[in-house]
Amino acid sequence: MHVHRTPGGPESGPTNGPEGGPAPEGAGLAALERLLAGRDVTVLSGAGLSTESGIPDYRGATGSLRRHTPMTYQEFTASEQGRRRYWARSHVGWQAIARAEPNAGHRAVEGLRRAGYLSAVITQNVDGLHRAAGTVGAVELHGGLDRVVCLDCGRSSSRADLDRRLRALNGTLFVPRAALNPDGDVQLPGAVVDAFRIAPCEACGGVLKPDVVFFGESVPKPRVQHCYDLVDAARALLVLGSSLTVMSGLRFVRHAARAGKPVAIVNQGATRGDAYATATVPLPLGATLTTLLERLTTP
């Protein structure tokens, strides 16, 4: 664990280990326990929280950005071939996303919320696993893969319905050893993509898009403001499993730090927000959050 002395008072965390190195594991858990014990903590979660559910992250040691380029909003809207590429790859990847279940980290976050330690949960993930764990009020900053929206008429529909339509048009595609990406798609041979048939909006015949924020697309301003409001209302911010590489998440860390609120980051690897944190803890999320829940709720 590394601790930075930014405004936040005594609860900011313990000192570093000897000669400025990482503090012992126990010190990291103690700092997180003190942070949560004060209650009114908003969580910001990232892809690292879902890796234990079998969904990879973008930027970790085995992150998918090391092997593929995600679909951008500009590419998706510019051509039918771009949309065919997305929907073919996503049609295969959706099977794994739909089967994924909340892991110990998601369940512990919900346990901490129910016990009154968390005031809000904001997630950068699009896998819906916080909702599946019972955190129905989690703000999905980048949307959710289980919803589809028409770019022409604005109609919203379920991904399960679209999946049935795509299977009727294309069958259930199976690609052995296909590597799932965090945005729910997989690599496919060009011939499979070229032959794939995409489905239009049932209401108007328009272009369907997953209800997620693609790379190159902006998060809706009202959603961003809502997240700022949740951070403002909280006493502290706890980041779980995010490298904070993109501004959509980093801005909330900066905002909390400017307001003098304690910021703790639990992530296995350096993050872009470390300089703003009162404590950085490189521990595995599932076990760490489960231990914290047990410590805080056991009489």
Score class of each variant (00 low, 15 high):
residue 1 M to L: 01
residue 1 M to K: 04
residue 2 H to A: 04
residue 5 R to Y: 11
residue 6 T to Q: 11
residue 6 T to R: 14
residue 8 G to Q: 03
residue 9 G to Q: 00
residue 12 S to F: 03
residue 13 G to H: 07
residue 17 G to L: 09
residue 17 G to D: 03
residue 18 P to K: 11
residue 18 P to I: 12
residue 20 G to E: 09
residue 21 G to A: 07
residue 24 P to R: 07
residue 26 G to D: 13
residue 32 L to Y: 00
residue 39 R to D: 09
residue 41 V to T: 15
residue 46 G to C: 08
residue 46 G to S: 09
residue 46 G to K: 02
residue 47 A to I: 10
residue 49 L to D: 02
residue 49 L to V: 15
residue 51 T to Q: 00
residue 52 E to P: 11
residue 53 S to L: 13
residue 53 S to C: 14
residue 54 G to K: 07
residue 54 G to N: 03
residue 60 G to L: 02
residue 61 A to H: 10
residue 62 T to R: 12
residue 63 G to N: 06
residue 66 R to E: 10
residue 69 T to N: 11
residue 73 Y to F: 14
residue 75 E to N: 06
residue 79 S to T: 15
residue 82 G to K: 09
residue 82 G to D: 01
residue 83 R to W: 04
residue 84 R to A: 08
residue 84 R to Y: 06
residue 85 R to Q: 14
residue 86 Y to F: 15
residue 90 S to E: 10
residue 95 Q to A: 15
residue 97 I to G: 01
residue 98 A to W: 13
residue 99 R to Y: 04
residue 102 P to E: 14
residue 103 N to H: 10
residue 109 V to H: 06
residue 111 G to W: 00
residue 111 G to L: 09
residue 113 R to A: 08
residue 115 A to M: 00
residue 119 S to V: 10
residue 120 A to H: 13
residue 121 V to Y: 02
residue 122 I to V: 15
residue 127 D to S: 06
residue 129 L to H: 07
residue 129 L to W: 10
residue 129 L to V: 01
residue 131 R to T: 11
residue 131 R to C: 09
residue 131 R to Q: 13
residue 131 R to I: 00
residue 134 G to L: 03
residue 135 T to N: 10
residue 137 G to C: 03
residue 138 A to E: 06
residue 139 V to H: 06
residue 139 V to R: 14
residue 140 E to F: 07
residue 141 L to K: 04
residue 142 H to I: 12
residue 144 G to T: 13
residue 147 R to V: 00
residue 150 C to T: 07
residue 156 S to K: 02
residue 157 S to C: 12
residue 161 D to R: 06
residue 165 R to E: 15
residue 170 N to W: 03
residue 173 L to H: 01
residue 174 F to N: 13
residue 175 V to T: 10
residue 182 P to L: 12
residue 182 P to H: 05
residue 183 D to H: 01
residue 183 D to P: 02
residue 187 Q to D: 14
residue 189 P to S: 07
residue 194 D to S: 12
residue 195 A to M: 01
residue 196 F to E: 11
residue 196 F to Q: 12
residue 200 P to G: 10
residue 203 A to S: 15
residue 206 G to V: 12
residue 209 K to H: 01
residue 215 F to A: 11
residue 216 G to D: 05
residue 216 G to N: 05
residue 219 V to I: 02
residue 220 P to D: 14
residue 220 P to L: 11
residue 222 P to F: 09
residue 223 R to N: 06
residue 224 V to F: 05
residue 227 C to K: 03
residue 228 Y to I: 07
residue 229 D to W: 05
residue 231 V to I: 12
residue 233 A to T: 00
residue 234 A to I: 09
residue 237 L to W: 09
residue 240 L to T: 10
residue 248 S to C: 11
residue 249 G to H: 02
residue 250 L to W: 01
residue 251 R to Q: 15
residue 254 R to S: 12
residue 255 H to Y: 15
residue 256 A to I: 13
residue 265 I to N: 05
residue 266 V to C: 14
residue 272 R to S: 13
residue 273 G to N: 01
residue 275 A to K: 09
residue 275 A to D: 12
residue 280 T to Q: 13
residue 286 G to D: 13
residue 288 T to A: 02
residue 295 R to W: 09
residue 295 R to A: 03
residue 298 T to K: 11
residue 298 T to M: 01
